[in-house]
Computed example of a mutant assay.
Amino acid sequence: MRVDVTWDDGADKDIPLPQYETAGAAGADVRANFPDRKAYLLTSGARLLVPTGLRIAVPEGFEIQLRPRSGLALKHGITLPNSPGTIDSDYRGPLGVIVLNAGQDDFIIEHGMRIAQMVLVPVIQARFHMVDALEATSRGAGGFGSTGVS
């Protein structure tokens, strides 16, 4: 499926567009694209909005979900605190990725580094309807942990 992208103002156009690293990959890797081309230190526990240098036109009826890269998460504790982040089909602004260092060590985000992955996902919008009562189920109002922990 075609997804149109354009460069944001000040973007480094030598940075590759999002791309799938293998034939079976669900997520296309997206890269840091800092306007000043510098690296940024992300201390333990800190967050940073990392620019990608892109603006994107998600097809109507779809969203793009931004997800952490598993290798960065396992090796360095680098994750996305709002994962999955959503890019709606009507958004046309700069694409940024909120990155969190949940690891114990500082981490350097280099210009051009693969920082997240994006997955194109179909969206079904619901119509919400007020009712007097909800249909009963065997679980009922049992919330967090009500079905057991193992």
Rank of each mutant, 00 (worst) to 15 (best):
V50F: 11
V121W: 01
R127I: 14
A23L: 14
E60L: 03
P81K: 13
A116M: 09
G148K: 04
T43N: 08
L17Y: 13
G61N: 01
L54N: 06
E135S: 13
I115Q: 06
D88K: 09
V50D: 02
L95R: 06
A126Y: 02
K38I: 02
A133S: 15
T137M: 05
G96N: 15
L95C: 11
G85F: 11
L49Y: 07
D90E: 14
A26T: 12
E135H: 11
G77T: 02
F107P: 03
Y91L: 03
N82S: 12
A116Y: 09
S146C: 00
H76V: 01
L49E: 08
Q19M: 07
G10S: 11
F144H: 14
P84L: 08
R92H: 14
D88W: 12
R55Q: 15
L49P: 02
D106V: 00
N82R: 00
L49G: 03
F107A: 09
I64Y: 02
G27Y: 00
T79H: 02
I64F: 06
L17M: 10
P84S: 05
V30L: 08
L134Q: 15
I56K: 08
S138K: 08
V149I: 11
A141P: 00
R67F: 09
G71A: 09
M113D: 13
V119E: 09
S89K: 01
V3C: 06
R67V: 11
R47D: 14
G85D: 06
T22P: 14
L49N: 13
E110K: 09
